[in-house]
């Protein structure tokens, strides 16, 4: 690691002014990605601005309408929050898979999306739930849907003088359920070869009123399988329809070959994961899904 300045921000406004005043600085939360990058000299910031003491970034609250996850809240704290497990179960599933106990005790919700790894586990779940990123900038704040947040591997739409305040997740409606699964060679402490989140909303008659399928490690950013979703919306679901949607999702994937898997293997495995997650979500939603408000 090259030498750098360590600056701890006590408030949002202090963090924003430090961001403006320092060139080539990086925001430091849990550090489970940034410190590894700095050791490898892939990141060489002149300053690290620690955001863990900022009150707004430590919010973890469910107000009925939405879940508010401050950007610096550690993953372990989020998955231990009962409302997350009960009402945002797909997010609970995805976050439980990230790293190890040690990594989840430090690593944060904000870090997992700001690092913008195409294979990250939480983004597919956040895309399924229609989450939004609350971003603070110079005297301004903007709220972006998660679809518009990622730009490419390691790249988000945030500018150098902006910082992520929180992730806002709308409460899923009654008769809805989601499921996230990933494929890794090793069960724990591994990076997804493929990850799929599926989320279904049914009406009283069992008709699907909304379908979301989001994929990780299948494109430069996490992506939704829009055509596959359209094939399910408005239909009374059955196994054939889910199978077709899974095949369509695989066609919408744009995977690459790398050290973890070949393009062909990824395309095959994403179909399997889409079918399994859709089936699980359908069964859970049919059984009543999440608690209503």
């Amino acid at each position: 690691m090259i030498d750098f300045q360590y600056l701890s921000a006590r408030s949002l406004s202090e963090a924003l002014s430090l961001l403006r005043e320092t060139k080539h600085s990086r925001l430091l939360a849990g550090g489970t990605d940034l410190i590894v990058q700095m050791k490898d000299r892939r990141a060489n910031p002149s300053a690290c601005i620690d955001v863990k003491k900022i009150q707004e970034l430590n919010r973890l609250e469910w107000d009925g309408n939405s879940l508010h996850i401050g950007a610096a809240v550690p993953l372990a704290k989020i998955i231990a929050f009962n409302e997350v497990k009960n009402r945002f179960n797909i997010l609970y599933q995805a976050m439980s898979l990230i790293g190890s106990v040690q990594v989840r005790n430090r690593g944060t919700a904000g870090g997992n999306i700001c690092n913008a790894a195409p294979s990250a586990d939480s983004p597919p779940a956040l895309l399924c739930l229609g989450a939004r990123a609350v971003i603070a900038g110079n005297n301004s704040q903007r709220i972006l849907p998660m679809e518009k947040f990622f730009r490419g591997p390691g790249k988000t739409v945030m500018t150098a003088d902006e910082l992520l305040v929180e992730i806002e997740v709308p409460t899923p409606p009654p008769h809805s359920a989601g499921c996230y699964m990933r494929h890794t060679p090793r069960e724990e402490m591994d990076i997804a070869v493929a990850g799929v989140g599926s989320f279904l909303v049914l009406d009283e008659t069992g008709r699907c009123t909304q379908a979301r399928i989001a994929m990780g490690a299948m494109a430069p950013t996490p992506i939704r399988a829009i055509e596959a979703e359209a094939g399910l919306t408005g239909k009374v679901l059955n196994h054939d329809l889910l199978e077709k949607a899974a095949e369509q999702a695989s066609l919408e994937a744009r995977p690459i070959s790398d050290l973890r898997a070949s393009m062909e293997y990824r395309r095959e495995i994403v179909k399997v994961l889409a079918r399994r997650t859709l089936t699980n979500a359908w069964q859970a939603a049919s059984a009543g899904g999440v608690k209503s408000k």
């Binding site: 550090g31 690290c48 040690q102």
Partner: peptide, 9 residues
């Protein structure tokens, strides 16, 4: 809480 001391400043 258990943490990795190699990843903490």
């Amino acid at each position: 809480k258990a943490i990795n001391s190699c990843l903490v400043l």
